[in-house]
Each structure stands twice: as structure tokens, then as C-alpha cells.
Design a protein around this nucleic acid. Structure first.
Length: 516
DNA sequence: GCGACAG
DNA sequence: ATCTTGTCGC
């Protein structure tokens, strides 16, 4: 314990590392250079904290400027953080990422720990934020993106930061983000309102003293985004109790100047239920994979020549957070006669996140389609109608397109509602619908002339439209023809049946909330 | 007929 | 994820 600590693992390009490696390994002694205070010129203090100060220092041998964090063992012990400190150093020294502050090395004397850290000329992001009041979304997004990269890396390394806030994000001379302070942080109680301290970034499970996991960093990322874009943390209040109450109730509101995209992003991260917080890993990965594949928006077959064309639909319904019952209904086209019904019960591991449509569903749909292909190959559908938007989606990738591309099958998106794209929302669609005759349809385009979808007004008296958009390998005009044929009711028959069947199954199993 | 629910 | 709607269960 009292023996001098060895050098921590160094980043590849660290000058300190070069020195160690250039030293001839004499004898069998593998002990690397032992750092000590006299190897540094100590300059001006960079910051003060609860456990000690940070100084600008120069590593004499190479004239290399670093930050030296001094932590008094006494203070640390008083807070019962002695052992934690060592674990944190071990952890931090193994992290190597462009957006994580590098720990070059560490050493100790009788009373103090010394951490040799990367020097960041522009200091804490907190300071820059104070100067600016608030950042415009473009600038905030740059910081958030880099921070996300760092957090993603942390998650891969099974490390939870736990203490994300603008005080712990350093900005170097190149304006690059460097995430700092992995737990042993020098708490900067001088800057933030001492009364609330770092309470602003606490998530509900911490406030309620429940178990927590890596998703607390997602919560904090949402809070951070809010603070960078507005200058104030979302749950700010006069008293500790008030903040905690607001956090428990997830009660916060946006200033009017924020864009919808920004609010949306924050909303997806600041979620009470940890499993509902937007995650960087799987969703994003799937999203990228699917986006890298080609979506075909034209007819891949001459549908009109095939009189035996079958329509199919699958739907998906859940109340239990992770349980889904999917249903696939094959109908004869164009009569709409039901030929086959398959269901699938599956535990979904991906959380539902609005705006990231299709990721949860696609697993279930895929299984159903495979099942059909294996057992009833003659009934395998040529085209699937999917409940929800298709290519017409703010991210240009709705459920129907996901299913179509993922399962490599022609697909059509059939939605009852619209998501706002380029100023076209529910209200605009309703106006458009009211201008067309029952049973007729019209194409809706954005201001650039890009076609989004076709709105069909049902044959009955309702002005509630059916919105058809391209999924994959089916053109919009063909999609509309097929859809109209399948519309015995307002929702195309296969979708309607699948919806009813999957919901009935859930109900029968007592998995819909009104049953208990 | 009324209430719940739909992702 | 708030359909001034459609459907089902009770």
C-alpha cells in the first residue's frame, strides 16, 4: 500500500509514455519511471476544489504542459472516498478516447495524490457557457455530439461516468471536448449554486435511492443539452427539496426559442423510466445499418399484371413493457378474403422511443414472415401493408420502410396519423382531406416538391384520412391502388384484422391494462 | 350506451 | 402518444 504506485497505462502518443519506452529496461526490473513532484515546474492554479487544487505544470524533461491535480488524502478519507479513488484512477487510466481527458500518470506522497492530466486551455465548458449565457443549438450540438461519443465509449468499456455536467467537460485549445472527472472529481462547489450543488443533474432513480445503471448518463446528457441550449438546468429551484420533487415528477418546461428537434432530443433522454431513455448503442446502430441499405421507392414488379396478388399485413400490440404479440394476416387480393393468420409472441429488448419507429417491431415482423415462408411458402405475401408511416417520416425511415428493407419484401406504410414534416402536420392533412371527395385521394408534397404520401379520404362520412406512403419496392401510386382495394373499413382490412387479433390475444392473457 | 384504448 | 374516431368489452 505504502509502496510507490507504478505509472498508469499511458496513451499511445503521450510524451511521458515515449520516455518510459525509450528507457532501456535494465535488469529485469519492469518498474517504469517513477514520477515525483520535482519533475514538474508548478505554475498558476487552474482551479480549486473540495479535495485540492489543480495547477498548470510543465514536465521539465520535455517542456510538456499538463494539468496537475492535487488531492489531499486527509480530505478524501474524511469523505470515505479513499478506496474509491484508487479504483477510479485504475479505470480512468485505461480509457483512451479523443473526447476523454487523458490521465498521463499519477504519483503520491505522504499526504497527497497527484494526477497528471491533459491540459485544456479553454477550461471548463461551464465557464464558456457562463460567458455566452447560452449556446445556439448548433454550437451546443457540437459539444453534445462529442460528449456522446465519449459516453458511448465509456459504455463500451463498462464505465458509468455518473457525474456529467458542464463543470466536468473540458475544452482544449482546439475547441475539442474532453470529458473529465470520473468520480474522484474536485468538486467545484464555488461555481454552481452551492445550495443545490450538483443536484441539478440527479436522475429519479438516484433521488429515490434505487438501483441505477449506465442509463443515468443518458439522463444527464439530456439535462446537459437543456443547460447548454438555455443556460439553465431544467430542474433548477430554490431549495433542495424542490429540485428533488421536480426530478421525481420529471417536471420541466422548455423556453419558446428552442426548436422542435432540440426539444425532441432532450425529451427522449430525460425519461423517468431508465429503459425508455434514448440509447446510443443498438437503436443507433440499427438506424445506421438500415440507412446504409437502399430503399427502393419504385415498383419492383408489375403489380397490375398479377391477378393473384396477395396482400398481407402484420400488426403489433403491447402493454407489458417488453412483451409483444405480433400478428400476420394474409388476405386474398383484391377480394380481401382472409387466407392465413399467424401470431408471434416475443419479448422485445429494445425500448420504445418515439421517432425511432420500427426497431422494436421489425424483430417480430421478421419472425412472422420467416414462419410464413417456412410453413406456408405458397402464401408468402408479395407485399406487406405495415401499420405506420413509411418513407414519409421525419427521419425518412418509418416502420414500413424498416420492415421492407430489413425483411427484403415490398412494403407499404398505412398510417392514421401523420408526423410533422416540413410544416405539414395533422392540421394541414385535415384541410387537404376536407377538400377531396370521399373515396378519392391526393398526393402531398413538401415545399421542395418532394412527394411525401398520398392522403385517401374514406368512403364513409369521416374526414379522418388514411395516409399511404412508400415502404419499399412499391411506388406510391401502386400503394394507393392496393390500399384502396383493401379498405373494406377505414383501415385496410389486413391491418385491421391483425390489430384486432393481436390485441385480443393480449387481452386474453390479461396483458392489457384495463383488465387489471 | 359508456369507457378504455390505440404506438 | 392526445383520432372531435372506430372498435371492443361490459
Amino acid at each position: 500500500m505504502a509502496a510507490p504506485r507504478r505509472f498508469a497505462q499511458l496513451s499511445v502518443n503521450s510524451p511521458l509514455k515515449k520516455e518510459i519506452e525509450s528507457k532501456p529496461k535494465k535488469d529485469d526490473e519492469k518498474k517504469p519511471t517513477q514520477l515525483s513532484l520535482d519533475m514538474f515546474d508548478v505554475g498558476k492554479p487552474l482551479g480549486q476544489g473540495k479535495f485540492g487544487n489543480v495547477y498548470l505544470v510543465k514536465y521539465k524533461k520535455y517542456d510538456y504542459v499538463c494539468a496537475l491535480k492535487v488531492i489531499f488524502k486527509r480530505q478524501l478519507q474524511k469523505c470515505g472516498m479513499g478506496i474509491q479513488m484508487k479504483r477510479e484512477i485504475e479505470l480512468q487510466s485505461h480509457l483512451n478516447h479523443p473526447n476523454i481527458l487523458k490521465l498521463f500518470g499519477f504519483f503520491e506522497d505522504k499526504n497527497r495524490w497527484f494526477l497528471v492530466l491533459e491540459y485544456c486551455k479553454k477550461g471548463e465548458l461551464y465557464g464558456l457557457l457562463q460567458q455566452a449565457g447560452r449556446f445556439d443549438e448548433r454550437r451546443a450540438a457540437r459539444y453534445i455530439k462529442a460528449t456522446t461519443e465519449a459516453l458511448k465509449y465509456c459504455q463500451e468499456m463498462n464505465c458509468i461516468h455518473r457525474d456529467l455536467k458542464p463543470e466536468n467537460i473540458m475544452i482544449d485549445h482546439n475547441d475539442q471536448v474532453k470529458l473529465a472527472d470520473f468520480g474522484w472529481s474536485v468538486h467545484t462547489n464555488t461555481k454552481r449554486n452551492t445550495y443545490c450543488g450538483t443536484l441539478d443533474y440527479l436522475c429519479p432513480e438516484i433521488v429515490l435511492e434505487k438501483y441505477y445503471d449506465g442509463s443515468i448518463d443518458q439522463w444527464c446528457l439530456g439535462v446537459l443539452t437543456f443547460e447548454l441550449c438555455t443556460g439553465e438546468p431544467p430542474f433548477q429551484s430554490n431549495s433542495r427539496e424542490e429540485v428533488m420533487k421536480k426530478v421525481r415528477n420529471v417536471k420541466y418546461s422548455f423556453p419558446s426559442y428552442l426548436t422542435n428537434d432540440c426539444k425532441d432530443f432532450i425529451n427522449k433522454l430525460i425519461q423517468y423510466d431508465p429503459s425508455k431513455r434514448m440509447i446510443m448503442e443498438k437503436q443507433w446502430e440499427n438506424y445506421q445499418i438500415l440507412h446504409s441499405k437502399d430503399v427502393i421507392l419504385e415498383d419492383s414488379h408489375d403489380w397490375t399484371l398479377n391477378t393473384l396478388l396477395r396482400g398481407l399485413d402484420i400488426s403489433f400490440s403491447t402493454n407489458h413493457p417488453n412483451l409483444a404479440i405480433g400478428c400476420l394476416v394474409v388476405c386474398e387480393y383484391p377480394s380481401g378474403k382472409e387466407l392465413l393468420t399467424l401470431t408471434c409472441r416475443k419479448i422485445i429488448t429494445i425500448p420504445y422511443i418515439s421517432g425511432f419507429l420500427g426497431f422494436r417491431e421489425v424483430e417480430v415482423y421478421h419472425e412472422l414472415l420467416n414462419d410464413c415462408k417456412e410453413k406456408y411458402p405458397e402464401l408468402y405475401p408479395q407485399v406487406v401493408l405495415v401499420d405506420g408511416n413509411g418513407y414519409y417520416h421525419p427521419r425518412r425511415f418509418g416502420s414500413a420502410t424498416h420492415v421492407g428493407v430489413y425483411c427484403d419484401i415490398p412494403s407499404i406504410g398505412v398510417a392514421k396519423t401523420v408526423l410533422c414534416v416540413d410544416g405539414i402536420g395533422k392540421k394541414e392533412i385535415n384541410i387537404i382531406t376536407s377538400q377531396i371527395k370521399p373515396g378519392e385521394s391526393t398526393t402531398v408534397s413538401t415545399s421542395n416538391g418532394e412527394v411525401l404520401c398520398e392522403v385517401i379520404r374514406s368512403r364513409g362520412g369521416s374526414i379522418n384520412p388514411i395516409i399511404v406512403s412508400c415502404g419499399n419496392k412499391v411506388s406510391l401510386s401502386t400503394a394507393v391502388i392496393i390500399c384502396k382495394e383493401c379498405c373494406l373499413h377505414k383501415i385496410p382490412e389486413p391491418i385491421r384484422l391483425a390489430d384486432l387479433i393481436s390485441r385480443k390475444l393480449l387481452r386474453d392473457e390479461g396483458l392489457l391494462s384495463h383488465m387489471n
